[in-house]
Design a protein around this nucleic acid. Structure first.
Lengths: 159, 159
DNA sequence: GATAAAGTACTCGGATACGTCGTGTCCGAGTGGACATGG
DNA sequence: CCATGTCCACTCGGACACGACGTATCCGAGTACTTTATC
């Protein structure tokens, strides 16, 4: 089970956009994190398609958060990049083979599917409990307020 | 994020082995679930390598549970098939680029990594709380005691 | 009839191709600002 | 000095190759049972 590596980039970008007061181009976000600009663009497009960030076209365009940071959860970002469908998919093998369970007895998911779904929902609940604003607060707590201020200044520098 | 499809097979096989009183060959488990025998063998080898099931070689050989079902958790099976490392891997991009965080300030994981790890541990806790014995009980509760009895009889049939 | 040894059929185990999805990249469409020009 | 039209540079958006991992398969090593020949 491997999550897309772009999720990490997307989450960092979301936190960074918290400090921005103007649209930030994908190129600038890429050079800031020292990652591939072309590939990061793909992730940002996914975030835009999910309605988490808004794209501003034109000369001084870029990306900005579409909602207040407190209303964007980590789960939103993860699902936008990595897909919303659960990792475990039940193929109903209980209905196959010589000892197949008759379909009329399969009104509810099989116990294995239930257990996996419960774990998946626990995971989602933990991610939904954390917002981008929370992460920004944690960053300030870890590294001090100067980091966010310096970040804001760097983002405002002319290209 | 996509989990290996073999996890479903492995979990079903583990529950089935609960009812077996003699070693069950991989071929028999495969035809029971109507899946590829060659591929299922791979999964069972992984379970054997993890010490969850024991392989008995020779004429009347096969696989049997290495421990009581109550001492094998769903998490054990998932980790044996899908790997024990978490889905999210932090690549420490905070230490890269022009605004890189100095290494001496990185004693603890970054907030994003912490949030993802917390979610991952919630997922693992939910899986660790379910044992193979619990799943077998749920099966009996869903489909009645006859299913397990019939399963036991079918497994005891001559090849 | 009992014993022992050889043969056999069945099992697991690891090494080997194929397909699919993630990774990484590129170029085209669209838009806002900047500039030169005329009034 | 101000309005206006044109131009241009910069942005996003989707379409295109490459590579790695999961999927599916095969054949070889090892072992317990079966059979048979002998005492």
């Amino acid at each position: 089970m491997k999550m897309s590596g772009g999720v990490e980039w997307a989450l960092h970008c979301a936190v960074v956009l918290t400090a921005a007061e103007r649209p930030v181009p994908a190129t600038r976000l890429a050079e800031m994190h020292d990652v591939s600009g072309s590939y990061l663009a793909k992730q940002l497009q996914a975030l835009s398609r999910a309605g988490l960030i808004r794209s501003v076209q034109g000369h001084a365009g870029g990306y900005e958060l579409a909602r207040p940071p407190a209303e964007i959860t980590a789960l939103d970002v993860v699902e936008a990049i990595d897909g919303a469908q659960p990792a475990f998919v039940c193929t109903e093998i209980r209905q196959r083979g010589p000892l197949a369970t008759p379909p009329e007895a399969c009104s509810r998911p099989c116990p294995i599917s239930r257990a996996m779904s419960a774990a998946d929902q626990a995971w989602r609940a933990a991610l939904a409990a954390v917002t981008i604003a929370d992460l920004a607060v944690d960053v300030t707590g870890d590294y001090g307020p100067d980091v966010m201020a310096g970040l804001r200044g760097w983002l405002s520098q002319s290209a």
